[in-house]
Design a protein around this nucleic acid. Structure first.
Lengths: 204, 204
DNA sequence: TTAACTATGTTATCGTTGTTAACATATGTT
DNA sequence: AACATATGTTAACAACGATAACATAGTTAA
């Protein structure tokens, strides 16, 4: 994202095919969804033959996994950034993390779905899990602060999990267009704040 | 599901191809996921040519939509059944609905995903939404009972929505294997009960 | 009974896709 | 300059979704 400059291939060789394929894949996935995405499309977009990607990725899934991991990292950054705009360890900062989470899902629904789908990433689940754990840490630290816990212990884990569950569910319901099923206008930010409050212990 | 008897084609014509295709599709999807599912596989399983399904379904997506709607209906039935095992309008009955929801997701993860994916069902979203609304009603009625509301009004809707969000998130995290990211053993039923309690107003 | 109609199959074929093998050309190292 | 390695290409494959042209079964009306 935010690449802009499309690098032209200067002849037989390309220069930065790997990066540009991830880039193209990201854009195409956001347009057509992970299923609608085809390796051939990405090749056309990058101006190379359909066999070229296999010098950089062992399969289509492999490329998708790359896109997913990139997304997970960016999600973590978003959460960190949003949280830092509020006093640490408060309902506000924790709700801000939730807003970042759902916001990402709404902004890049297909990538978000890809990030949390198992089947596409067979064989590299551990890698993916590690990146995910990193991003989850942002929430854990904030909750630890709220609870006044000096480190990330089981208490922190127990209070954090329902918060994750909540925003995760809200994300999916949003991007799958299920909010209309509820028959009343859901204000996402309000939803997040209310649930965050209810799912945390009152602290003084 | 629970079909068992595989109907043999008695010659040129088949007898119940439509039903058997939905059936086969359901089974195959649960094995390989909606993406791994191929029309051809379903045909092989039903013992017909690859062109035959198009007498009954306009496209592969159309068949998948059928499977999804069937799933939504069965989910509603599950919830109803589980709720009815408890005193109406209690935390217990509401938590039971949640357990039915997550239970379905875990039992038929691929079908569950299919039920809540938008892209596969382009053009028939309204149909799907109607079926979904029906199943959601089970929760709404139970919450109305808990709140002592005589009908499903906005108050009921407002208290119900976070409950849905919660179990929906828990479902997806479960079937996507993300529970391990939390680093402590999540007891799903306990999770549901705790969150249900916290997300409902204390009623006396 | 038979003729016509409709529903539901088949075979043959198309374009697209993911992937691999065999080959070609750059780039970097000795 | 010679070679090794990285990175492209072209050609081919099987599998898939879908359509068209054709065949047969079941149903209805004369």
């Amino acid at each position: 994202m935010a690449k802009g400059k499309i690098q032209k291939k200067s002849g037989y060789h390309h220069g930065n095919l790997r990066g540009q394929l991830v880039n193209a894949a990201g854009r195409l996935i956001e347009q057509n969804g992970p299923d609608g995405f085809s390796m051939s499309d990405a090749c056309r977009l990058a101006g190379v033959s359909t066999a070229a990607p296999y010098r950089h990725f062992s399969s289509k899934q492999d490329l998708l996994t790359e896109v997913a991991m990139d997304g997970l990292r960016r999600l973590g950054e978003d959460m960190e950034r949003q949280a830092s705009g509020h006093p640490r360890g408060t309902v506000q900062s924790i709700a801000a993390i939730g807003r970042a989470y759902v916001g990402f899902a709404i902004r890049e629904p297909h990538t978000f779905r890809l990030m949390f789908s198992t089947k596409e990433h067979a064989g590299r689940i551990d890698e993916l899990k590690a990146v995910g754990r990193g991003s989850y840490g942002v929430l854990l630290r904030e909750v630890a602060g709220y609870l006044g816990e000096p480190e990330i212990n089981e208490t922190v884990l127990r209070w954090s999990f329902p918060l994750w569950t909540q925003v995760h569910g809200l994300s999916f319901l949003s991007i799958d267009g299920k909010l209309e099923v509820t028959d009343f206008p859901v204000d996402i930010n309000e939803s997040i704040y209310i649930a965050t409050e209810r799912l945390l212990p009152a602290m003084e």
